[in-house]
Design a binder for these strands. Structure first.
Length: 224
DNA sequence: AGCTGATCATTC
DNA sequence: GAATGATCAGCT
């Protein structure tokens, strides 16, 4: 078995690829792909995500759009503990801090990214060596009406604060399902944002993240 | 600098 | 212990 060289042409093919790697460890998948496994993820935080992108045939590289644009599917690996609970929040996308006028929830990047997600849980307990962590079977998720409404409310509140020039007042405590946190290589990175008087200010870039409590409900529904 | 892939580590 | 705020790596 080796990684596919082309993207899946339909959803079924994508799910089949998931089933083929389900139950395998990251070490096995790396070995089959002739890739070195890092001792820890401290300096390789995106390693497993990129390994699984390779195995599912997602187009490599960073693009602001979905991982499988032809299928309208976004891939998210999610680290879980032994009880299938998420160990980390889930990054959704970069947050625009200088909003083009007329952006609404329905046209937002967050909603587009989350319209259809292939969740791929991976054992993430730190006592398990990276190479021994196993991949679970992935599952497709589309937000239900209730979930969409929840996300919309958070997105609208956060976006309103950004538009009104209150980015600096936003903390990760805002938002029930979706929240905003810094997203940068380090604290020296600055980007343009709106200040309280409508002026341009410099601030740390932010990203939208899904809370663990939210992703936990998705995992529960999928795996009980 | 912007954006992707995220996890780390200090604070609470 | 968990959540918040900070950080790491690679590509465009």
């Amino acid at each position: 078995m080796k990684p596919p060289s082309t993207p899946p042409t339909n959803i079924d093919e994508l799910l089949q690829r998931c089933q083929q790697i389900a139950g395998l460890s990251l070490g096995e998948l790396a070995g089959l792909a002739a890739i070195q496994v890092p001792q820890n993820l401290q300096r390789h935080k995106g390693w497993q995500g990129q390994l699984l992108e390779l195995w599912l045939g997602a187009t490599a590289g960073s693009k602001p759009q979905q991982d499988f644009p032809d299928l309208g599917v976004e891939l998210k690996t999610i680290p879980i503990d032994r009880r299938w609970q998420p160990l980390e929040t889930t990054y959704v996308c970069y947050a625009p801090l200088m909003n083009p006028p007329g952006v609404t929830w329905h046209t937002s990047n967050v909603r587009n990214k989350l319209a259809q997600v292939l969740w791929l849980p991976v054992e993430g307990d730190r006592e398990i060596p990276v190479s021994e962590r196993r991949v679970a079977n992935g599952f497709l998720w589309t937000p239900g009406e209730d979930e969409d409404a929840l996300l919309q409310k958070d997105w609208e509140e956060l976006t309103e604060m950004i538009v009104l020039g209150h980015v600096e007042k936003i903390t990760a405590r805002h938002g029930n399902a979706l929240h905003l946190r810094p997203k940068a290589a380090d604290g020296s990175v600055l980007t343009d944002a709106l200040g309280p008087e409508g002026q341009r200010i410099k601030t740390r870039p932010r990203g939208f993240y899904l809370r663990k409590t939210f992703t936990q409900t998705l995992l529960m529904r999928a795996f009980g």
